[in-house]
Each structure stands twice: as C-alpha cells, then as structure tokens.
Design a protein around this nucleic acid. Structure first.
Length: 586
RNA sequence: GCGCCCGUAGCUCAACAGGAUAGAGCACCGGCCUUCUAAGCCGACGGUUGCAGGUUCGAAUCCUGCCGGGCGCGCCA
C-alpha cells in the first residue's frame, strides 16, 4: 500500500520535472507516513515541504501541483492538502478489507518480505567466555541478538547466527587452574584457593568430574604446586602474578596432555551448559566459532603479518603494538605481549578479518555496553587491513537491572553470586524473559521487573498479547458448541460488511505489520514489534468487548471470524519472531 | 580528567531517517460481567521532553555549553 502511494508521488514529481515546473536536478526521497490522526487521512507525505527549499517555492503551491498530477487509484478515495503542505491520502474501506484476505492466504508467511534481497548478513551475539554459566546480562544479549537475526531473516536477508567461543587465552587458563585446584582438594590435598580463581560452585562440580574420570592420575602434592609461586593478594602479594605463576606451574607439572584434560574438562562442561541454556531459551546458532581455531590455523599470525606490512605496527618495551591511534583510537594497543603471547585483541582482529573474508555484506556484533571502548580499535584494525569498517555494525546492549518486590536485586560477579539466565528463566518463564528483554531499545538502561514478568495479570504485556491469541482460539472452540461452522470463503465475500470503527481500526493495524517488521529489522529495534503487538492486542480486546462475533447472521459471523483469525495469525507470527509462544488456552 | 550511552507524565517506557495537538501501560479516581474467558473494556487525571542558547517553514529528535546518571579508559577477556 505504501509502495503504491510512493509510486503515485514519484510519477507526479517526474511529470512536473518533465514540464519544467520543478527543477530536474533534484531527486527527492519520497516519504509516506502513517498518520497519527485519522482526520489527516490514512497516509501522509511531507514531500512538498521537502521540495520547498530546492524548488524555492511555497510548500502548499507545490503540493497543489503534485496533487493535480496524481494518477487515479482505486484504493484512494480522497487526497487533501493540509497544514503547512502535507499531502494526505484517504483510503477506501476496500483497501483494508483486502488485508484480511492477504493475511489468511499468506498465513505464517504474512509480513515476510524480500527487502534484503538475499544479501548475506552475519550476527554474532552472546559470545560469553566459557568460564561460567550465562547470567542475566547475557540473557538480554541473547534475546536481543536472536530477535534482530530473526527480524532480518524475515525481511529477506540471508542471516548467519554465530557464537564466538573464547576457548583460548588467559581466562581459560585461569579456569583450568581453578578446576585443577578443586580437583586436588578432592584428591585430599590441602590447597589455598587463589583470590583470582573462579569461585563458583560449578568449578567444584567440574573438578569432581575430572576426579571421577581420572582418579589420582593428575594428582601432584600441593606443596609442589604452590612452592615458590609468587604470593597471593591475601598474603600480601599480587593476585595476578600468583595466578599466572600457578598456571605456569600446573602446566609444567601436568604436561601438555594432562593439562589439556583439565582445560577441556572446564571448557566442555561450561560450553555444554551454555549451549543447553540457549537452546532451552529458544536461541539457535548456525555456527560456534572457536577462537582456538584461529591460532591453530595461524590466522592470528597472518593478521599480525598483514598489519606489519601495512606499516601500523611497532615494538616497544618488548611488546608488539598496533598503532590504532592512526585511525582514531585513544591509544595504541598491544597485540603481542612481551612474553610472546598474542592478546585477545590480536585474536579479535583475526576473527573480524575472517568474518569479512567470508563475504558477508554486513557483519553485526552484539556486545555488552561495557565493551563500547573496544569498538574504535576493532574498526581501526579493519581499516589498517584495508577492509571497510562500515561493513561492521556494533550494537551495544545496556545492562538490565532486576527488581523484585520493588527492590533492586544485588549482583556481584566477584564472588560468583550473580543471577544466572537459567534462574531467571525458571522464575519468570521463557516467554516473559524473551519478551521483556526486547521491550526496550538496546541502548536504553532497562529495569526488569521480575514480579511483573511473572504475574498473570493484565499488567503483564506478554500475557495481554498471548491472551488475545488464546481468546480467538476460544471463540473458534465455541463455534461447535453453538453448532455453527466457519465458512472462510463466505467470510471473505462478506468482508465489505465489516464497517464498524473497531473493525476498521483492527484491519488498519493489521496492515501495518509488514512495515513494522521492516523498520524494526533495519533499525535493529525489536522493541517496535513488542509495542506493535500490544497495540494490536488492545485493538482486538476492544473489538471483542464491543461486539459479539458469533452472531446469527452467517454473513457477518463468517466475515468477523475471518478478521479475528487474521488477527490471531499476525499475533502468532509476531510472537514467533520474538521467540514467544502463542498459546491456544490460558 | 578524557571518551561513549542515557535524561520525555508520580513510575516503566514510545514517538517510525527533523513533521501536524509529544503517546501507551502502570499508579490514582469514576464507570462496564444473566451475553464468545473481566487474564478484558471505557472514561478522567497527569508534560516548560534535565537547563540555556543555536540551526529552519518546523526540534524530544540536529549543533554548542552546562547539570544529573551509567559505562569505559590493562602487555584482562
């Protein structure tokens, strides 16, 4: 519908340019908006206002000339010029009635489009370190990333969902050491757990698994592990030096194979847990990309070599630095430490180079907002490598603060006391969690009200929308009890009889769905869909309250059933894109 | 100190690439159940869009400066 009107305006402008009324050298972008007020018609364009300046004419004069050149269109019953020069289009009811048929014919495909024309786009999200279970902060990234990916897919992009597994690096070594020390404890050794180790109970569990599978085969006396290692912080030393010393010692004592056992025990257990968690949350991936594979394939070396050749690398204090300040970063960054180890950043350069090499038209990273300072250096690296940094979009997701009983839920990663995603899902359910997480713009700080998410009341937007869906199902169940049946073809033929305000309002909103999907996807704003679904549910509940659907007049009854079934379809489609179920009963 | 994000009704948030009279939901107040689920509907109340300038036909939206909040500024990831 929007496209039709855009075409009408485009043709009118072209005609005015052809006869010299408008300058030929301007190519205005035709914008058609839904009106906020029905007194302004159904659609409006600010075209004349936009043209006023380049054409050096009064907006209303231009509007009149455009309207005079508009071709006739069956759907448009009236065109008005209003306000400072808006062109308002009034559509006939038939245009809205047609939407109901469109929806019933398209079914679960209604709203999908080919806007993306099959362009390939990669969305990387969550990518939490496999050093512990996912917590509620990751949950927002998961729900948001999945929704953005699904929306892009819905409008015709070829979407690749990816999780970057940080299965290499110092944090993983710290995990391996933590697991091993818990293992030693279970072997009967007396160990003092390092301040910087991973404290969570799950580390005990992994240590126990290691012990169960290997018995005492990996055991070394605690004294051999701790002797001459730099003192830990509580003992007046440095916790970083202490843990690094421990890692080095443990590696030496265990040898490569046994160290790998401890390391992989931690990695596999935690990654398995994360995968399970996300799967239960309805979040699916096409690929789990291993950081370790980058160094195994020498991709990190290759990336560093490319940076060297581009002349943006130098040595200082025994380390190798990338001169990211050449491309707007605040300071230069180390890519190879003085101990010869490459940094996480070096892997990330290789990873992003790899993404672009894979030929995606666009690459999206969904990151926690605390990583925002990281964006300039990654873009700088891509620029230095000769890639176009504009192909990378980094979407920063702010933290969610949980509230329970009106009180902020305190969280601390330090002691391992954080609320896990799993706990949240069990408390409020997957549907509420998925929906609440995407109700807000990603850059908006979010207050997550656990009581509201859990409540089965009209205050809870998830239930409100799901209830609308269940109500339609319920009406259809009533059909049989009232010994009626639904004749869809008759309903379609009788749609012109649906002229009540409530019916038109509902149909108009149904017709907006494809537009909502498009803007929500392009702007990476799933919250637009949540707001839309709430409005649609409201329209339905209002209609339900004002009119009885199962009336005696079969023509009216069938037409109304077509309308509410179309409504149900759109709600189901929309909730589906957000990973929320559409229940038949509540 | 520097950088990024945010500031809209009492609370939680919208406002579609600057557009017409800034909208919803809670909360509070008043109505609606012999009728398809009241897990619902309707009405009323509520605003100097943090403050001050600027850009233009038009600013919550763009620019500048303040004020307030969050985050970041490692040879951690």
């Amino acid at each position: 519908m929007k496209e039709q009107l855009v075409q009408l305006l485009t043709d009118a402008v072209a005609a005015l340019q052809a006869d010299g009324t408008l300058p030929a050298d301007i190519t205005p972008e035709i914008m058609i908006e839904r009106t906020r007020d029905r007194a302004h018609g159904d659609f409006a364009s600010n075209l004349a206002l936009m043209l006023a300046k380049p054409a050096r004419r009064k907006p209303r004069d231009i509007a009149e000339q455009i309207v005079a050149r508009l071709a006739a269109d069956d759907a448009v019953v009236k065109v008005e010029i209003a306000g400072p020069g808006f062109i308002n289009f009034f559509l006939g009811n038939a245009a809205w009635h047609a939407v109901v048929d469109d929806i019933l014919v398209a079914g679960e495909h209604y709203g999908l489009s080919q806007h993306g024309e099959g362009r390939r786009i990669q969305v990387e999200f969550v990518s939490a370190n496999p050093t512990g279970p996912l917590h509620v902060g990751h949950g927002r990234g998961a729900a948001y990333g999945a929704a953005v990916a699904d929306l892009l897919s819905a409008i015709g992009y070829d979407v690749h969902r990816e999780y970057y597994v940080n299965d290499a690096g110092r944090q993983m070594d710290i995990l391996a050491a933590s697991v091993y020390l818990r293992y030693l404890d279970l072997c009967g050794e007396t160990v003092t757990f390092p301040a910087n180790g991973y404290q969570g109970d799950y580390v005990w569990d992994i240590g126990a698994t290691l012990h169960r599978e290997h018995g005492d085969a990996l055991r070394h006396p605690a004294d051999a592990v701790f002797r001459d290692v730099p003192a830990d912080e509580p003992a007046g030393g440095d916790k970083e030096a202490h843990i690094d010393g421990l890692i080095q010692r443990i590696r030496g004592l265990l040898g490569d194979a046994h160290y790998r056992s401890a390391f992989d025990a931690g990695l596999n257990a935690i990654l398995g847990n994360i995968r399970q968690d996300l799967k239960e949350f309805g979040v699916e991936y096409d690929e789990w990309f291993s950081e370790r594979s980058l160094s195994d394939n020498h991709a990190v070396e290759a990336a560093i070599e490319r940076l060297k050749q581009s002349g943006h690398v130098y040595e200082k204090n025994g380390a190798l630095w990338f001169k990211s300040t050449d491309y707007g970063d605040e300071k230069d960054r180390v890519i190879v430490r003085d101990n010869g180890q490459t940094t996480y950043f070096a892997s990330d350069i290789a990873y992003h180079a790899n993404k672009l090499e894979r030929g995606y038209d666009r690459v999206i990273d969904v990151w926690g907002a605390d990583h925002h300072g990281y964006v300039p250096r990654v873009k700088a690296a891509l620029t230095a490598l000769g890639d176009d940094p504009e192909r990378l979009d980094v979407l920063l997701v702010q933290f969610a603060v949980l509230y329970r009983g009106g009180e902020k839920v305190q969280m601390s990663t330090r002691s391992g006391e954080f609320v896990t995603l799993r706990e949240l899902r069990h408390e409020v359910g997957n549907d509420a969690a998925r929906f609440f997480y995407v109700m807000r713009k990603c850059e908006q700080h979010m207050d997550f009200d656990l009581d509201l998410a859990r409540s089965q009341s009209n205050d809870n937007p998830v239930y409100y929308i799901q209830y609308a869906h269940a109500r339609v199902r319920s009406v259809f169940r009533q059909l049989a009890e009232k010994s009626y049946s639904w004749d869809r073809a008759a309903g379609s033929a009788g749609l012109s009889g649906l002229t009540e305000d409530h019916e038109l309002a509902l149909m108009i909103n149904l017709s907006r769905y494809p537009e909502i999907l498009e803007t929500a996807a392009i702007n990476h704003e799933p919250h637009q869909l949540t707001h839309y679904l709430r409005e649609l549910a409201n329209d339905f509940h209002t209609y339900y309250n004002a009119h009885t659907f199962l009336v005696e007049d079969a023509t009216v009854r069938d037409a109304r059933l077509n309308l509410i079934e179309a409504t149900r379809q759109v709600i189901a489609n929309g909730l589906g894109l957000l990973g929320v179920s559409a229940p038949d009963t509540m």
